[in-house]
Design a protein around this nucleic acid. Structure first.
Lengths: 383, 383
DNA sequence: CGGGGATGACCAAACGTTTGACCAAGGCTA
DNA sequence: TAGCCTTGGTCAAACGTTTGGTCATCCCCG
């Protein structure tokens, strides 16, 4: 055991300190460890942090490391944060957790963050996100120095709010949205996904297409619409778009009714799977069977897709990866680097199920009907 | 403007301090405010916190409050937390965010927490939650003093882990699960919900019932099974139970195949809506139409229920309220009070949709179709 | 033997709060 | 007029870290 050293003359004793890390006693502080190893707290601190400028004898270092283990020392994050003005916490701003779209993003973000020793706090932000509202939850988090940075995954927060926030001391990364010339962002390739979905319908022989989109004007909606329009044009197909008021089933239902009542389309690209459920419902109310009378392809694949009737043909987007990379981008910014606009690489994947087939009475036959998996669930990479 | 006072003789000046709360400058500290109001920081602190023992002239108090407003002072949470050994942060432990079951609970918890000035950090905990794993994410959070307490909503964490955690310094509230004689918990009335679902089938005339349950042995599963069994016995119905391995669609699918292959039931209570989707799929694979040949009632209502085909008859459980009350219970514990076991009040509500009807070829007619909503409210949403 | 580096460690300030102790000045009472 | 209380504050320590300085000792070299 360590001999008594130093002018304090205090003899350190191996006290019974093997407290369970979940036990009831006070966690060991730097000072406890220093006393145990009979050195100054600064030595312990530098050992813990691997300070390269620390000059210390091997014997002392080992003594310190042993004490650290025995006392099961863990740095107090608040004290460290106070000193360093950091929190190792990031905020994830979203409008609503019920929307399954956000779950995988949050999940991916949490995974990556915890790998890096960060916590993720969720901040639900209502649509009342006006620029000068002093009670904006996330602005408060920033102002109280409770987070090191923010991931904003809400499509509803005003551009102005984001611009203001982006001028602040803390980095901001916008998730799956671009705010022109303002903030760093990470997005999935919505446009490519939309093209894949649309091309699939065209490959099946559809030439009169509908797009049930999200609220108009939203960046997100624009990117997807661009993809649908591009693929439709390339395929020589007619396209009519109906915007819903949101991304919920009712919005899809309403928009689809409007679309189907006025236009004779045979295939629809729905902006997401939830909206697609509303589209299918609307079609059936109008007496059109899916996929016999109307084909539907949805963007995003959620676990529920196979269990809808008919099961939905979808395009998978890498949402977990989106969350992970959003965190990485925030770290990049925290390290002092400049804003970037990142698009997640990787081709969107088409998942064939039952909601899309060849049009009934017209058009070319599907190019390769044999590729359809019998169970309708086999995944075929983009053709 | 405030005159120069005190022996420092320092004249305070109304500097241009109206920084936007999201602006780029350093947030004002207590010291800044003190200098601005020309008083000691302790006065400012006591004013901010409404210390009743503070004796101060009205003039001074107003001067301080004015400075607080001008400088837009917000306490630094880390410093305050360091001093008071609190974080105003609670951890929410869950296995997986993709399961829509958790979304409303987290959402409710976040709402309530933010009302109370608390942040919610999500902690995903894999099933590897063994008692002595030093790298348990939530144990680390506790040990580093990053949270004031924990809400555990994972059904998979070992009882032993919870028992150990529960002996620690920080309060622990188990969400929707009871760990015998150990920790405080908040649960919804699963048993009552199961009874409502089962009674509905019996009222429709079913006498041979199946229960597709969650993994056996889990408290949750037991409570629901108790409800199903009680109602079945009361109605003189036969009951056979099949346990899935999880709460995902595949588990429901597998368990339902097993159940339907070996027993001739006419109605099934599924432990949740996701599992129910698997049950419906299994039935259809076996050539049994829902609801004509098999009625299905699911516990929990998620927004997707109306859009499944057939749309699912469900029993609504107050999951958001569960989240809110879990936070309240944690606050109760943080205030130093003893553990409690709380069951959320309020009758589970039956939502009638298309997946359950009278049995085809047998049995008594429904007793009184109008009486089936136990709470007297007949709910019939779209679909 | 004196000077100059290394070596190995300690000291102390600072981060922003909270809070028990203390104190000067003035007024009241005995 | 001495003593005491009240009013209106100030002082300073403490929470647990981090980190730029300082410092005593020892060794080596000229």
């Amino acid at each position: 055991m360590a001999p008594s050293r130093g002018k304090t003359g205090q003899t350190s004793v191996d006290q019974d300190a093997s407290v369970s890390s979940t036990g009831g006693s006070r966690p060991a502080t730097l000072r406890d460890v220093a006393a145990h190893a009979d050195v100054d707290v600064s030595v312990v601190s530098r050992v813990v942090n691997g300070d390269p400028r620390l000059r210390v004898s091997d014997a002392t270092r080992e003594r310190v490391e042993r004490s650290l283990r025995i006392l099961d020392y863990r740095p107090n994050v608040q004290a460290r944060g106070l000193r360093l003005a950091r929190t190792w916490t990031i905020g994830f701003v979203l409008p609503d957790l019920m929307n399954p779209f956000y779950a995988p993003i949050v999940e991916g973000a949490e995974q990556r963050a915890s790998e890096l020793g960060y916590m993720v706090v969720i901040v639900r932000e209502l649509d009342r996100a006006r620029a000068d509202d002093p009670e904006l939850a996330f602005a408060r988090l920033l102002h109280e120095d409770r987070v090191d940075g923010l991931l904003v995954a809400s499509g509803r927060v005003d551009d102005d709010v984001l611009r203001t926030l982006d001028r602040g001391r803390r980095p901001l990364v916008i998730v799956n949205r671009r705010v022109p010339g303002v903030a760093g962002s990470v997005v999935v390739d919505d446009q490519a996904a939309a093209e894949v979905a649309t091309s699939h319908l065209i490959d099946l022989g559809h030439r009169r297409l509908g797009h049930v989109a999200g609220p108009s004007g939203i960046d997100n909606t624009l990117r997807r619409h661009a993809g649908v329009a591009a693929a439709a044009a390339r395929g020589g197909a007619m396209l009519v778009t109906a915007h819903g008021e949101g991304w919920d089933p009712e919005s899809g239902h309403t928009a689809a009714l409007r679309l189907l009542a006025t236009h004779d389309v045979t295939g629809v690209v729905a902006t997401n799977i939830i909206v697609a459920a509303g589209v299918v419902g609307a079609a059936q109310e109008l007496g059109r069977r899916v996929p016999e009378d109307l084909s539907v392809v949805a963007l995003h694949d959620f676990p529920v897709a196979p269990f809808l009737r008919p099961s939905l043909t979808t395009v998978v987007l890498p949402l977990e990866e989106l969350g992970r990379q959003a965190v990485d981008e925030l770290m990049w910014r925290l390290a002092g680097n400049a804003r970037r606009e990142i698009t997640i690489a990787g081709r969107p994947r088409l998942v064939l199920r039952d909601s899309a087939g060849p049009p009934r009475d017209e058009g070319v036959p599907a190019r390769d009907p044999g590729a359809r998996a019998l169970d309708g669930r086999r995944v075929r990479p983009r053709g």
